[in-house]
């Protein structure tokens, strides 16, 4: 059975994510998460709301194709994944996601 915990995999902590967070309008909080590739925006919204107890305003997603990987003669690729930018409603407290996942 799929639960909300299967939707969200881990936070994305990169320079790019931090810059995006700083650039959100009206000082709203922005979460950047790695999510299940099959998850839809409503599912992600639902998951974030129930896990972090916050109100979500918008979800943007992006699909990433796994990087090519080669081990000797065998060529393949790393798993593809989906990233979700989740904008919280104005006035929501910042989320410290290190621990909740």
């Amino acid at each position: 059975m799929r639960t909300v915990w299967d939707v969200i995999k881990s936070p994305v902590i990169t320079e790019k994510a931090l810059v995006a967070k700083e650039e959100t309008q009206d000082r709203r909080q922005l979460l950047t998460l790695r999510v299940d590739r099959r998850a839809t925006k409503p599912e992600i919204k639902n998951a974030v709301e129930s896990i972090f107890h916050v109100k979500v305003e918008a979800v943007h997603t992006a699909n990433y194709l796994g990087k090519m990987a080669r081990r000797g003669r065998h060529e393949g690729r790393k798993p593809s994944w989906k990233k979700a930018y989740v904008t919280l409603k104005q006035g929501e407290k910042p989320v410290d996601y290190g621990e909740a996942i």
Partner: peptide
């Protein structure tokens, strides 16, 4: 996820 030396303090601390 960060260029060397560009990670924010909070991240480095954890």
């Amino acid at each position: 996820g960060f260029r060397p030396g560009h990670a924010p303090r909070a991240v480095v601390r954890t």
